[in-house]
């Protein structure tokens, strides 16, 4: 479903990504862990075009684009990618000038061209699903961080995406809010949504994902099932990472 082939990206003289290969099957939940600065977020943002890359190719369903794809064509493909792949950000990025309901209906109405009443019906269902049925008329600033992140998830789901990208969705939250957001994500995982989750939440990675990829210095250094990674990591670097996460 998602296939990434030999992705390279440079920032000036610094190689952010140095040949990343990754395959995610339909319904698979892939967790990406790794130390800060190892290129996890940059990699995720390359998948939907928020970052460009210098070499390599990305296929999402039948949409394929590479570093060589001419800009206008790539832009058109990326818009389609974005319509099929939702993204959730570390800092939520809700639209502060629109209510919770409007945040969730914005995409369906203005991108998909859905009728307002249909979009609102869909939004109500999703907000109910993430436990915010009573907040639909609130403004984002009136919500806690955890509530805002759940709205952001609903906003992405409202596009009925084939897959979802999560970019450290709980890093800006305190433990209690982290729990409520991870609960929603675990739900989604159980329902068979294809997900790539960049995270530091090791327990979530262990319990909800099928595959874990460990990033180090711009490439994937180790991949495996949660059991393999957590019980018998191949590399010393992975062991250190897991220990640090436990200590924290």
């Amino acid at each position: 479903m998602i296939e990434v082939c030999d992705l390279h990206k440079r920032h000036g003289n610094f190689d952010v990504l140095r040949g990343v290969n990754l395959t995610v099957k339909r319904g698979e939940v892939a967790a990406i862990i790794g130390p800060s600065g190892s290129g996890k977020s940059t990699f995720l943002r390359c998948l939907n075009g928020l970052e460009s890359f210098h070499q390599g190719q990305v296929s999402i369903q039948e949409l394929t684009f590479g570093a060589e794809t001419p800009l206008p064509i790539r832009a058109r493909i990326l818009r389609q990618v974005c319509q099929r792949v939702g993204m959730v950000f570390q800092s939520f990025n809700l639209f502060p000038h629109r209510s919770v309901l409007q945040n969730v209906t914005e995409g369906p109405i203005f991108v998909l061209g859905l009728a307002r009443d249909l979009a609102e019906e869909r939004a109500r269902k999703l907000l109910d699903q993430v436990g915010l049925a009573d907040k639909i008329h609130a403004m984002p600033r009136q919500l806690s961080g955890g509530q805002q992140q759940r709205v952001a998830i609903a906003r992405a789901l409202a596009m009925q995406p084939a897959a979802m990208l999560f970019d450290e969705p709980t890093s800006a939250l305190d433990p209690r809010m982290t729990g409520e957001v991870l609960a929603v994500m675990t739900d989604l995982a159980r329902n068979g949504l294809t997900m790539i989750v960049v995270t530091h939440a090791m327990r979530f990675a262990r319990q909800a994902s099928q595959t874990i990829h460990v990033f180090g210095e711009g490439r994937i250094i180790e991949s495996g099932t949660p059991e393999q990674i957590f019980e018998a990591p191949r590399l010393e670097a992975t062991r250190l990472l897991l220990n640090e996460a436990q200590a924290a």
Binding site: G49, L50, G86, F89, S91, N93, F95, E106, G107, V111
Partner: peptide, 19 residues
């Protein structure tokens, strides 16, 4: 992040600016 969130929803740059 506002522009990124809008683009990630599949909006064109122009629509993102407008909305």
């Amino acid at each position: 992040g506002q522009m990124e969130a809008a683009l990630a929803l599949g909006m064109s740059r122009w629509l993102a600016l407008r909305r």
